[in-house]
Design a protein around this nucleic acid. Structure first.
Lengths: 129, 129
DNA sequence: TGTTCTGTACTAGCATGCATAGTACAGTTA
DNA sequence: TAACTGTACTATGCATGCTAGTACAGAACA
C-alpha cells in the first residue's frame, strides 16, 4: 500500500496517519472504502498490529476514518468539522514555507507558478470520474 | 526573546532552532548580530544550558549561525548552500498543505490571495541583487 | 452452531531520546 | 588575574515509541 521510513525520526504510527490522510485527501481512498485490517496491514508492513491500531485510532479521532467493531475501518465521507483551527495552522505553515523559499532565493514568480500548478492539479473528490 | 511551549510534543531544542531560524529568515536577527549566550538564554528561559547549546549546534550545522569560542554565537550572513534539497522539501510541503486546504473547503481564490499577500509582505531578509 | 474473521483493551519489557545536573577546560576580553 | 565565552564530557530521571503476548466481544459465514 505504501512505504515507511523506519530510520526516520518520525514515529511509525504518525507516518501511517500522514500517508493515509494524504490518500484520503487525494481521493485515492474513496469514501466508505474499507482500509486494510489491522492484522493484514501489520503483516504486510512487518510491524506490530498495535502500531496500526494506534494510527487508525488517531485517524478516527481526527475525523478521517470510522471503525465498525467486527467489520473493519472505513473512510469517512464527511470532512472533519473543526476546519477553522486546522486551516489557520495550515495558513501559518504555508506562510512560513514561502518566507523560507524567498530566503533561499526562489523567485516570487516561481512560487506563484508552483501554487497555481497545484491548484489546477487538484485531485479532489469532486472532479474526475 | 520568545516563548516556548513546554507542553508541546516537540523537543525544546527543536522549538528553539525553529524560532531562531524564523527570526533570521525574517531579518529580525541581522547578519553578524550576536545571539544571546548559552548561559544567559538558559537562565532567561529557565531551562538547561545544554539544551541551548544543542540548538545552537544544530543551527550551526544547518548554516544559519557560526560560533566563535570564547566570544559567542552569531548570525551567518550567507545563505545555506544545499538549497536544492531543502527547496524540494519545501515545495512538497506546500503542495501537501494546499491540497488539504482545498479538501477542507478553502477556495482556490482565497489560497491565491494568501500567497500573494505573503509574497508582498516579505520582510526582505536577503536581497539577491 | 462453530469457526474465523474483525476491532479493542490490556500488561509488560526494551530501546531511544529529551532534558537535567554537575564538572571541567580552553579561548577571549577587560 | 578575573570574568566572561563556547565546548565537552558523565550520569540520571523520565517520557514515549514499539514490541510481544494475551484476552474478549461483535460480525460474517459454511
Amino acid at each position: 500500500m505504501f512505504e515507511l521510513d523506519l530510520r526516520s525520526r518520525a514515529p511509525i504510527y504518525e507516518q501511517l496517519v500522514d500517508k493515509i490522510k494524504e490518500l484520503i485527501i487525494n481521493n485515492v481512498l474513496k469514501p466508505d472504502e474499507q482500509l486494510p485490517t489491522v492484522r493484514v496491514l501489520a503483516s504486510e508492513l512487518t510491524i506490530n498490529p498495535n502500531t496500526i491500531q494506534k494510527a487508525y485510532r488517531e485517524l478516527e479521532y481526527r475525523g478521517y476514518v470510522y471503525s465498525v467493531p467486527g467489520k473493519g475501518n472505513f473512510v469517512r465521507a464527511t470532512v472533519p468539522d473543526n476546519n477553522a483551527a486546522r486551516l489557520q495552522t495550515l495558513e501559518r505553515e504555508v506562510l512560513k514555507n514561502v518566507s523560507e523559499m524567498l530566503y533561499l532565493g526562489m523567485s516570487p514568480h516561481d512560487i506563484t507558478t508552483l501554487i497555481q500548478r497545484s491548484l489546477s492539479e487538484d485531485k479532489g473528490g469532486k472532479v474526475h470520474d
